[in-house]
């Protein structure tokens, strides 16, 4: 993102932006942080850090642009740069490793799943949440941004600092992984997952 030097906001303007554009997003921010860390205290710290940074760098926020996307980008960077470094728990999947393996934009669209629409519709909230939470953080993130928070591909590309093509392919892979999880739940629920063909 280009750090264009803008005019400085007055104290009054800063408060107004903070109250009217930043704070209303605290619910989404906290849920994003919680889904990244799975810990209430870590999520609180992450959100707090994000808001402090947002206030500190408020002059680089351009009014009229999407404040939520701007805040999400700060939160995601804080998560990668600060939280993941000091986190003692071993990362299940290393971020770099995921990047190296999955950064190709070529996606195999031919692999289809035999998951049924009815089975998906009957899933419980806990099963959906567990399936989502079991995905590696990069895959979990794109689904959160797209499906839960409604960001566009372009906004996601900015938040994640990746090209739109990578957003699209990562989303596709993420949903395929999610479908695999849901299919295994569906089969334990007694749904037949066989194709009737």
């Amino acid at each position: 993102m280009s750090e264009v030097q803008r005019k400085k906001y007055s104290e009054q303007e800063k408060s107004k932006i903070f109250d009217q554009e930043f704070m209303p997003n605290i619910d989404s921010m906290y849920n994003f942080a919680y889904r990244l860390t799975f810990d209430e205290d870590d999520a609180k710290d992450l959100v707090q850090d994000t808001y402090l940074k947002a206030f500190r760098f408020i002059n680089s926020f351009e009014q009229g642009t999407n404040a939520k996307a701007w805040l999400f980008r700060i939160l995601k960077n804080s998560f990668i740069n600060d939280y993941r470094k000091k986190s003692k728990q071993p990362a299940k999947i290393d971020y770099q490793e995921v990047e190296t393996y999955y950064n190709s934009d070529d996606v195999d669209y031919t692999s289809t799943t035999d998951l049924r629409v009815d089975a998906v519709k009957d899933m419980l909230g806990d099963e959906i949440s567990n399936a989502l939470n079991s995905l590696a953080v990069d895959f979990r993130t794109v689904i959160i941004l797209c499906d839960l928070e409604g960001f566009t591909y372009e906004e996601m590309a900015k938040i994640l600092d990746i090209p739109i093509g990578t957003v699209r392919s990562r989303l596709h892979r993420a949903r395929n992984l999610l479908k695999d999880k849901l299919r295994s739940y569906a089969s334990t629920m007694g749904y037949s997952t066989d194709e009737e063909e």
Binding site: I26, V120, L124, L148
Partner: peptide
């Protein structure tokens, strides 16, 4: 239809955490 169903359940059923009251 499968992709649509996946998006629908994610949107409507994912468990939400309440923001801790003292955070703001």
């Amino acid at each position: 239809h499968l992709e649509q169903a996946i998006r629908d359940v994610l949107k409507t059923k994912c468990t939400k955490q309440a923001v801790p009251s003292e955070l703001e």
